[in-house]
Computed example of a mutant assay.
Amino acid sequence: MSGYSGRGVHGQVVAALGARIVSGELGRGDVIDLAALGRDLDVSMTALREAMKVLAAKGLVEARQKRGTYVRDREHWNLLDSDVIRWRSEAGDTAAVLRDLAEVRSVVEPAVASMAALRRDEHDLAELDAALEDMRGAVGAAAEVAADLRWHRAMLRATHNEMLARMDVFIEPALRLRDALVHESSADDPVPSHAVVVEAVRGQDPAAAAAAMTSLLDKAAQDAAGVLGHSGDAEEKETVSE
């Protein structure tokens, strides 16, 4: 689901209320007083109602007769939504997001690389090579993140499995968060580790492709843990697992 923050009054209301819910300022079961909220944010009831529809789609709120609009339990939140991920990070939950991302990737992406090695075609290889070139020429965190995302999308598509190809919908938001954090703090060149995966895929060696992807992911997790460790935040250190 695409982000709404920054898209006019509507987006600002979604962002403000979503952040309050995810941070715990509004707790589970809390009934939202729309009239008071409208006065607080200086927005119309129309804008509030539209924002509530967006937040309901993200699983954060629900409206019921006689009860009103209330905050749902965390188990109902769409934790894969890009806005929810960002709000969690802004609320100080970055370490947990990155930990969950690392675990999901460790389960999924070695298998993706293995399948890509068996199914890739020349177009897939050309796209992977182009993504590597983007990575080599990227200047600045934004360009580096975009190139990394292009590479991972190309790898997913190279499986020629439509469901796997769509996994970028939930991998992208958290991957963007991790990459932005790491690229801004690390001078390591990401190209060699990614190139090893591509060469294994090119050589149609599924075992080597899976092993190379596992090595790449291990390095990514170490980089993220290192950046968070430098913050000196004891809570973050307890949350990140190696």
Rank of each mutant, 00 (worst) to 15 (best):
M1C: 10
M1E: 11
G3C: 09
G6K: 13
V9W: 03
Q12T: 04
V13G: 04
A15N: 15
A16N: 02
A19P: 11
I21M: 05
I21C: 07
S23L: 01
E25N: 08
G27H: 11
D30Q: 12
D30A: 15
D30E: 10
V31M: 05
V31W: 08
V31S: 12
V31G: 13
V31E: 15
D33V: 06
L34G: 11
A35N: 07
A35L: 10
G38F: 07
V43K: 03
A47I: 03
A47V: 05
L48E: 04
E50S: 14
E50C: 09
A51E: 01
K53R: 15
V54R: 11
A56T: 13
A56V: 13
A57Q: 12
K58W: 03
E62H: 12
A63E: 14
Q65C: 04
K66N: 15
R67Q: 15
T69L: 12
V71E: 06
E75C: 00
W77T: 09
D81H: 10
D83N: 11
D83K: 00
V84R: 06
R88I: 00
S89N: 00
A91T: 01
D93L: 08
A95S: 09
D100F: 11
E103G: 14
E103A: 14
V107R: 13
V108A: 13
V108Y: 10
E109W: 04
P110H: 05
V112A: 04
A113D: 09
L118T: 09
R120H: 15
H123S: 13
L125P: 09
A126M: 00
L128T: 01
A130N: 14
A130T: 01
A130K: 13
A131N: 04
D134I: 00
G137C: 07
G137M: 03
V139K: 15
A142N: 08
A143G: 03
D148K: 00
W151M: 09
R153V: 03
R153L: 07
M155A: 04
L156R: 04
N161D: 14
E162L: 07
L164H: 03
A165K: 03
M167V: 06
D168R: 02
V169T: 13
E172Q: 11
A174E: 14
A174H: 08
R176K: 06
L177K: 06
D179W: 05
D179I: 02
L181C: 02
H183I: 01
E184F: 06
S186Q: 02
A187W: 00
P190C: 03
S193F: 11
S193M: 12
H194Q: 10
V196H: 04
V198F: 00
E199W: 05
E199P: 00
G203R: 01
Q204K: 09
D205R: 05
P206R: 03
A209T: 08
S215L: 07
S215F: 06
L217D: 11
D218T: 07
D218F: 08
A221G: 11
Q222F: 09
G226T: 06
V227D: 07
G232T: 01
A234H: 00
E235H: 04
V240A: 11
